[in-house]
Design a protein around this nucleic acid. Sequence first.
DNA 1: GAGCACTGC
Length: 747
Amino acid sequence: MGDLPIVRFEEKIVETVKENPVVVVIGETGSGKSTQLPQILYRRGYAKSGIIAVTQPRRVAAVSVSRRVAQEQNVRIGEEVGYAIRFEDRTSEKTRIKYLTDGVLLRESLFNPELNQYSVIILDEAHERSLNTDILLGLMKRLIKWRHSNLKVLITSATLDGGKVSRFFSDCPVLTVPGELFPVEIVHISELPKSYVEASLKKAIDIHVREPEGDILIFLTGQDDIEKLVLKLEERVQSLEEGSCMDALILPLHGSLPPEMQASELACHSPCWLPEWIVAVVCAGMFHVRVFSPPPPNCRRFIVSTNIAETSLTVDGVVYVIDSGYVKQRQYNPSTGMYSLEVVQISKVQAKQRAGRAGRTRPGKCYRLYPSTVYHDDFLDATIPEIQRSSLAGTVLYLKSLDLADMDILKFDFLDSPSVESLEDALKQLYLVDAIDENGSITSLGRKMAELPLEPSLSRTLLEANELDCLSQALTVVSMLSAETTLLPAPSKSSEKKRRHTLSNLPDGFGLGDHIQLLQIYEQWYQTDYNIDWCKENNLQVRGMVFVRDVRKQLSQIMQKITKGSLDVQTSNRRRGGQQEFKSLRKALCIGYANQLAERMIRHNGHRPLGFKSELVQVHPSSVLKSDEDGMLPNYVVYHELIVTSRPFMRNVCAVEMRWVAPILAKLDKLNVFKLSGGSSQPDNQIQEVTSTVEKKEIAAVQPPEDRASMIQAARERFLARKEWPHPLNMWHSLVGLELDWDAKSP
DNA sequence: GAGCACTGC
């Protein structure tokens, strides 16, 4: 590995690190930064007073890079070089270089905020801007002030973003280490295509017919488009004259592919937490994950992929990349509490990353299905960071529990701040689940919740379940929800009927809700002694169920620790006695999901989420929740998630009772976001009561203050006239208006 | 009566 580019910069790196507490390292793909930076610092004695930590956004990366470095150091993994990821800690007293996921470092920081076991912290792949990396960046900025004499922080980033990170850390030095990629020729299309599936098809066939050998990687946005393109490619390739060009192998690649699609003889050696169809391979100082076995001779592979191939997976042999310029992104709207999955333009960083996939083994070409003017003028420099696209309840609770001095959550120093709306939404949610009091201070309950690696509503459910003697059931439900997306195999048109048939053999939660069904499914599996075949028979993903078991074990241990008692966490083995048995559990869910509560309209089955400025939503049709003899759904439900697809839906819904809901309504009534946020600049209470957050900010900005009176009056009039957004306790009065509204929207 | 990118504690 002596000839990796980064090694030539050793003196420069060491010198800069010596002089500065924070250094940004721009290391392009192939520079060997992930493996070599820690080894350089280790050689120069930086591990004498502490451990060198290297964070990674992904588990696979933490494991495979550390394996590589252990090999280079000629030690066994877990000795001088080790790694720590959830469920697996391969470190010992001897460990000097420790790779860990950024989530694990955040957990460690909860119990040891100064992180004083570490002498160096390297935040790798910071340009990916994962939620956890962003929190760590903010924490590092504070930590450097406390520990400026004995802590070094290195941050690796992409070219386009290095300057920004450097400015964030008081203009710290930026070192650039070239990569070892082969040149990639970029070709832009002259006009935006009408359909990028068609455009990709045309370009791919074009390459296949004209260009020399080398695999083609095509970036699309989702499973649907991928399946469409795969079919069309197969058609077109078959219609080509035999012998006119080489053979073709067309392969889809996305996260929900069933394992059997990509069977490989090496797969059985991969760790259990990896999807069976992926094999981790480390070579040339870089890690990558290899997909598929090598292609047959004289055959070109067409890999049609989501952005999973952008960073998470590397396909060997790719020489041509076709980039649609789009990606599917999940976004959270803090004013409605809804998630949506939207197709959006990629950023320049992403476009560069995609192009780089063509130059790993030899010079390559990247065909962009968008004009270069669009790239320069429309594309954002960097992807919108996750912290600006997610619900921040968990993040805010985490930061509150750190007890940082002079901590004002609205002023926490983020590289990119989330919106005020988003932070206020988080505070509101935390208040409803009793994690903070009406002044925004963390409660003792909130501290316990922060120790659980769960969203606040789920950790609140566990703690309440413990009080109500149904902890064992709640542990199961919460663990099942943690793995929910990996439980059921991806629905594909051909297996649709079969899947439905087998699903009907599973329990139905007595019609009380999806949480109850999840509980019953796990308990049935438990009764088969965790039989793998039972999962297969019922079409449940084995990997997902095993993950649930691991999560459940971890949560049980943390609950034992938090409550300092021996708890009944055993999975139930009794024969079910009926609905009555789930009453306590449902009550615990109601209290835990106080921030995710919805009320049914009088005359129809539309629900209105409480506490959000929101449209009506429907129970997702996949739910097992049953309606009564009049066809009506329960008056009150809690939901796990609001997701907008063709309409807004509540996914994973559970029926709750009015008498449990009443105290939550009272709390919603008292809600005062200004007080929650510390209230230093609190405007007078009349504005608070009658205006939305946006209006409040507008009013507060008016100068001089005397001119605000008329605006306040106007806001009050609007409030009094407002029918579609009633006060929680007066809601019945305005239901008629809502129903009319709803009917007008229905087709 | 619908359909969903990718991570992580």
